[in-house]
Amino acid sequence: MRLTQRRPARPLSVLATIGALFLTGCGTQSGTPGGETGSASGSRTIRAQQFMQLTEVHDETGMTLLEGPVFGEDGGLYVVDVTAPEGRPKVMRVDVRRKTSRSVHTDGRGAYTSAQFSPYDGRLHLSDFAHGEIVSLAPGGGDPRTVFSGDVDGEPMNPDDIAFDPRGNLYVSDSRGLSEGTARGRVVRIDRKSGEATVLADDLAAPNGISFDPDYRGLWFSELTENRISYLRLDEAGAVTSRHTAIRVDGGIAQTDSIAVDADGNLYQGLHGRAAMAVFSPHGERLATVELPARAKGLESATNVAITPGGTRAYLTVSGPAGGYLYTFEALAEGTRQSNGG
């Protein structure tokens, strides 16, 4: 997630770690939301429209980065700002009807790169990339708890995105090795009852996006520095039965970021380094590209998306020197739990 600094940044303890994520990579016509045109590749171009600005570049960190949009049971859209300093909202709740936002959580330590609500206890879970932890909050904020911390198979984690299965077990994309440019990343399963961490896939090139398919039969994950999306077939116990590279993303200078999946199984692949999102069928066909209007300046990455549960209105997190924004468009199918791009 490469963000250009607008002004000199005063160093924070977390930026030495999280900076690697940004530097390595965690002309259209305007129209109505969901407006579409053709493209040279034959896929559709969907025109996203500005919904609201949530953040500005922070003086303390020299950047802002929105991530992890997720709808709560209360109808609110929860969004994290990865680089927010202490005292600024690190987790926000957006009222999409009123176009207002409020702070849900801040602290002096975390660098939160994703958010998901657990289907087991309803708590909001956050991945702290810089400190290798998963923490949780009460549904409306407050009552912070550490869900997981420590090494996995003797190696620390850099948890990026997260996903839950229906029983509340947690699946994490571990971007370990990103700062060194080495393929040491992993997909890790954390058992809800025991807290035991199991490596499902390893030797990965900075895994980032992670999401189940609609039937929870398999897990999609993207690798940032290889621009590819892979598929893990899982059994009922969450063990891997097969793995293969499913989609190679022609991103040019852009790289594969977070993933969300709609009710039809279509994949919404965020792009780091380009304010756009690629949409694929589960069979690998490029269905559409979500683009911003040409007038949108100073926005460099479209990291993630959440599709309204039971509806098709999608909210895209976009960031850059101009600040952090939500853009909206009409998705190809309805939103479900997996349509929140954890």
Rank of each mutant, 00 (worst) to 15 (best):
T4A: 12
R6Y: 02
A9P: 00
L15Q: 13
L21Y: 09
G27K: 13
G31R: 14
P33S: 03
G34F: 10
A40K: 15
S41A: 13
T45H: 12
Q49V: 11
Q50E: 13
T55I: 00
G68P: 07
F71N: 02
F71G: 06
L77E: 04
V80T: 11
P85R: 09
E86A: 14
K90Y: 08
M92P: 03
R93F: 01
D95Y: 12
D95E: 05
R97E: 03
K99G: 02
S101A: 14
P119I: 03
D121L: 15
G122F: 02
G122D: 06
R123E: 07
L126W: 08
F129W: 09
F129H: 15
I134F: 11
A138H: 11
G142L: 08
D143I: 02
R145C: 00
T146A: 05
D151Q: 06
G154Y: 14
D161P: 14
D165I: 07
Y171A: 04
S175Y: 05
R176T: 04
L178G: 06
G181I: 05
T182F: 04
A183D: 14
G185K: 09
R186Q: 08
R186D: 00
V188E: 10
I190V: 12
R192N: 06
V199N: 13
L204F: 14
N208K: 15
F212Y: 09
F212K: 15
W220N: 12
I229N: 11
D235M: 10
A237H: 13
G238D: 02
G238A: 11
A239M: 08
V240L: 08
S242F: 02
R243Y: 01
G251D: 03
G251R: 13
G252N: 07
Q255S: 04
T256N: 03
I259M: 05
I259E: 06
V261Y: 08
A263Q: 12
N266Y: 00
L267S: 13
Y268K: 08
Q269H: 01
L271S: 06
G273L: 01
A275K: 00
M277K: 13
A278T: 13
V279A: 12
F280M: 12
S281Q: 08
G284N: 05
E285R: 15
R286G: 04
R286N: 06
A294G: 13
R295Q: 02
A296R: 00
A302Y: 00
T303C: 07
V305M: 09
P309S: 11
G310Q: 05
G311N: 10
T312D: 12
R313A: 13
R313L: 01
Y315I: 01
S319A: 10
G320H: 12
G324L: 00
Y325R: 00
T328Y: 00
E330P: 00
L332T: 11
A333F: 06
A333L: 10
G335C: 08
G335R: 14
T336F: 03
R337W: 01
Q338P: 01
G341W: 04
